[in-house]
C-alpha cells in the first residue's frame, strides 16, 4: 500500500458511509483524487488530506461517538487493513491522519511487527 491508495481508500469509505462529499469546496478535490492515477499531484493529495471528518457530517460532538465504530468498519473494508479503531480520533480528525494510521499499520505488519 502507498500513501495515495491509503488516502483514496479512506476518502472513499467516508463518502460511502456518509453519502456526503464534504464541504462545498471539497467535492472537486475528492473527485480529482478518485480519478487521477498514482502518483496523485501533491496539491490534491494534501488538500484532501486536510479535510476534517466534520465536513462530511455537518455536525459534531457526541453523535460521532455512536457512529464511529461503523465508520471504522467501512474504512477497514475499503483499505483492507485490519487495524483497531483509533482511540483518539474525533470529528475534527483530518483524512490524512486516518490514512497515515492505516498506512503505518500496513507497513508495521509487513515489517513483521516493526522488526
Amino acid at each position: 500500500m502507498n500513501p495515495f491508495q491509503a488516502l483514496r481508500a479512506v476518502a472513499q469509505a467516508v463518502q460511502d458511509f456518509t453519502g456526503s462529499s464534504g464541504a462545498p469546496q471539497d467535492k472537486k478535490y475528492l473527485e480529482d483524487l478518485k480519478s487521477t492515477p498514482d502518483p496523485v499531484p501533491w496539491d490534491i493529495f494534501f488538500y484532501v488530506g486536510g479535510i476534517p471528518l466534520s465536513h462530511f457530517f455537518a455536525y459534531s460532538g457526541q453523535a460521532f461517538g455512536s457512529v464511529s465504530s461503523s465508520l471504522w468498519e467501512e474504512i477497514k473494508k475499503a483499505s483492507n487493513v485490519d487495524a483497531p479503531e483509533p482511540e483518539n480520533w474525533d470529528i475534527d480528525t483530518h483524512l490524512l491522519q486516518i490514512s497515515t494510521y492505516i498506512l503505518v499499520h500496513a507497513m508495521y505488519d509487513e515489517s513483521g511487527g516493526g522488526q
Partner: peptide, 9 residues
Amino acid sequence: FGKGALVPD
C-alpha cells in the same frame, strides 16, 4: 504508531 491505536498528529 504501528502497534498502537492512536492516529498521528
